[in-house]
Amino acid sequence: MSKARVLTVFLGPQHPGAPGNVGFKLLLDGERVLDIDLIPGFLHRGFEKMMEYRRWDMDLVLSARVCVEDPDHVELTYTHAMEQIFGIEPPEKAKYVRVIVAEFSRLANHLLWMMHFAGPIAARYATSWAIAAREEILKWFDYVAGHRVYHHYIFPGGIRWNIPSDFKEKTLKVLKVIKPLIDDLRDGFFYHPIFEKRARDMGRLKPGDAIRLGATGPTLRGSGVKFDLRKALKYDAYGEIDFEIPTGEYGDSYDRALVRLREMYISMEIIRQAVEKMPTEGPYRYRLPAAIPTGEGIGRVESARGEFLAHILQRPPGAHRYSKPLNPYRIKFRGPTMAHLTTVLKHIVHNEEITVADLPVLIGSFDPCAPDIDR
Rank of each mutant, 00 (worst) to 15 (best):
K346M: 07
M51C: 09
M1C: 01
D252T: 01
K206A: 12
P156G: 04
L220H: 05
P180S: 14
K332G: 01
S365Y: 02
A215Q: 09
D37P: 03
L362K: 02
T342G: 00
H80A: 10
I194D: 00
K179W: 06
W140I: 11
P91R: 10
P336T: 09
D35F: 04
K231S: 02
A132G: 13
G46C: 08
G217D: 09
R256Y: 04
H340L: 09
H347K: 11
A257R: 02
E249G: 05
K49T: 08
H116C: 08
P91W: 08
L233M: 02
T171Q: 12
P91G: 12
V174F: 01
R285I: 14
P16E: 07
Y329P: 00
E269H: 11
P316M: 07
E52D: 00
I137S: 06
R272E: 15
K277E: 08
G203A: 07
E307C: 12
M338E: 10
M338R: 14
L111P: 05
P283Y: 02
E103M: 08
L28D: 07
R315A: 09
P289L: 02
E244V: 13
P336E: 13
S105K: 08
E269C: 12
F190Y: 15
T342S: 07
V68P: 01
L11A: 05
I354V: 15
T247V: 15
G295P: 06
L26N: 13
T127F: 11
A310M: 13
Y322K: 14
A64D: 13
I266F: 04
